[in-house]
Write a protein that binds this DNA or RNA. Structure first.
Lengths: 301, 301
DNA sequence: TTGATTGTCTCTATTTTTCATACAGTATGT
DNA sequence: ACATACTGTATGAAAAATAGAGACAATCAA
């Protein structure tokens, strides 16, 4: 097909509407030579005369008349298409699909999403809180939240924040254990073990001391942190849980930290995006909201 | 506005429909590098990601999905506009406005136009037979027929054919005149003078002899050849008339040539077109038809 | 692992677009 | 009739966009 340059169309339409090449050129901010040349080229492409020029005036041919209407319509439609797109770019809207691990999803992401809905009602939310790893493309996921430590991934990541891990237990269980002074005292206690995490537990004191031991035959094995949490609340024993998950339990006293002088490895929260050159507005505003929500639950104790 | 290249749109749409850059490039007959580059440029222009690429597959973003529909529509419309135009270019149609002098119009052009209508029913005809000179642009005249000798004009001319001028009179008048042997014998006869033509009459013999005289106080002055014709038929006197006008009269004997051994200056029939780079089909076929019609009336005697 | 396929990148050649200037024809006002 | 102002066009150089060939990294299937 011959027609491919919308600017030519624009020039032609402008000439028709202005009634003169010079006026059109002025309006378009171009030299009149260009407009003349472009319209001539358009005619050549189309193999038909559109305008009849004399040195003093411009008139449309019959073909030009008919083509003008089409041309104007095409331009209008093109403009509409672009505007529609850019409006979407500015006003966050559309379906936002977010995945996150179950625990972090429930504790933080859900709140961020609900606030987002209040701010931007045109965003529809699809929250997939699961510990499974989904196909970002197939499920059309806009943002994947990863908690912990990133493996390599082709996707682009943005750090949302960090979290601490705390060794906690219910007050009852702590009392039953009796006094504890060093991590090694905990080695043979009742650990609630999250099987997807490494069995080795690393302790770091404020002074830089390091102690590590590996859980041998933990009496309770669970498959996700929500279960760990439930077991700990049920006085099942010791449990390593992320700070964001136990914020309220620590505040209310339903759980308490064991050996608060010792810390575990800090983890990160990351947002992963599909590998696209541009990030839609809905994604941007969600990430901002998530960062805000995360700050509220960070490092409670 | 940013969007201006329809080829980009075409590439994008093709990628979406093929589901792959490589397939799209193949279909478009281009290198995949170009397609990739063009689509990237389109995204840049729009400030929005349209496609999410991985090394193995291409997926549309939400924005891309929506834009795709608009893009496809725009392309379809552009194609339609071009086709419509080019079809018009091939199948003669539309309003054909023709001007011609009254006499030639009635004698030749009308016939050509009527034949044209039979051949190409989609042509509508606007026949303006008048001796006035009209504004070609203002009246949207596609073809102006000029009879005689061209003055300068910015319009483009095409010669349709030529015609002779004959000095004629009715048989009665010729008989009344008595025997005539040389042009000078006619100088003081009753001339029917067409005031828009020069008063000087030039005679050329077959042997190359030239005689010229100027009409002094012609007894009958008329303003157009149709009147001349009528006066001649009414035995008013001698009259210089174009061949196409008196073809039938000569055949039927109602008029007859005077001094057929002497000739007058040959005239031409010209078609003038508006100064347009391209000539619509309707114009082309009309000119052909007119040439054919003219041949039939040319140089009867 | 290899081999095939994907999309992208780089470099170069070609085409297109733009600009500034000069030009020719025509209407207008004196 | 004349100059003036205005029209659209032609020309040639500079800038930009487009096209093509080959190499590259990433992925999937065997």
């Amino acid at each position: 097909m011959s027609l491919y340059n919308l600017n030519r169309l624009r020039h032609f339409v402008e000439v028709v509407e202005s009634g003169s090449f010079t006026a059109a050129a002025k309006k378009l901010g171009l030299g009149k030579a260009i407009v003349s040349h472009q319209v001539a080229k358009l005619e050549e492409e189309l193999g038909a005369g559109l305008l009849v020029r004399t040195t003093r005036s411009v008139q449309m041919t019959e073909a030009g008349q008919r083509f003008y209407e089409n041309a104007a319509e095409i331009l209008a439609q093109a403009e509409r298409a672009v505007q529609e797109l850019q409006q979407e770019q500015e006003i966050p809207s559309g379906l936002l699909t977010v995945t996150a691990p179950e625990d972090y999803g429930q504790c933080v992401v859900a709140r961020a999403l609900m606030r987002l809905r209040v701010k931007y009602p045109k965003i529809r939310v699809n929250a997939v809180f699961t510990d499974e790893k989904l196909d970002q493309l197939k499920e059309k996921i806009d943002v994947s939240i990863r908690v912990g430590w990133l493996e390599d991934s082709s996707a682009i990541a943005r750090k949302i924040g960090s979290f601490q891990q705390y060794t906690v237990a219910s007050p009852q269980y702590v009392e039953a254990m009796g006094p504890i002074t060093t991590p090694m005292d905990l080695q043979d206690k009742d650990w609630i073990y999250h099987c997807k995490l490494p069995a080795g537990i690393l302790w770091q004191s404020a002074e830089g001391e390091e102690v590590q031991f590996v859980l041998q035959n933990p009496p309770i094995t669970v498959w996700n942190t929500l279960t760990s949490h439930a077991c700990a609340l049920g006085h099942g024993g010791l449990c390593l849980l992320p700070s964001f998950q136990i914020r309220e339990d620590l505040a209310s006293g339903r759980l308490q930290r064991v050996l608060p002088g010792w810390h575990h490895k800090e983890g990160g929260i990351y947002a992963l995006f599909p590998n696209s050159r541009f990030r839609p507005a809905k994604t941007k505003v969600f990430v901002e909201e998530l960062i805000k929500a995360h700050k509220e639950v960070r490092d409670v104790f």
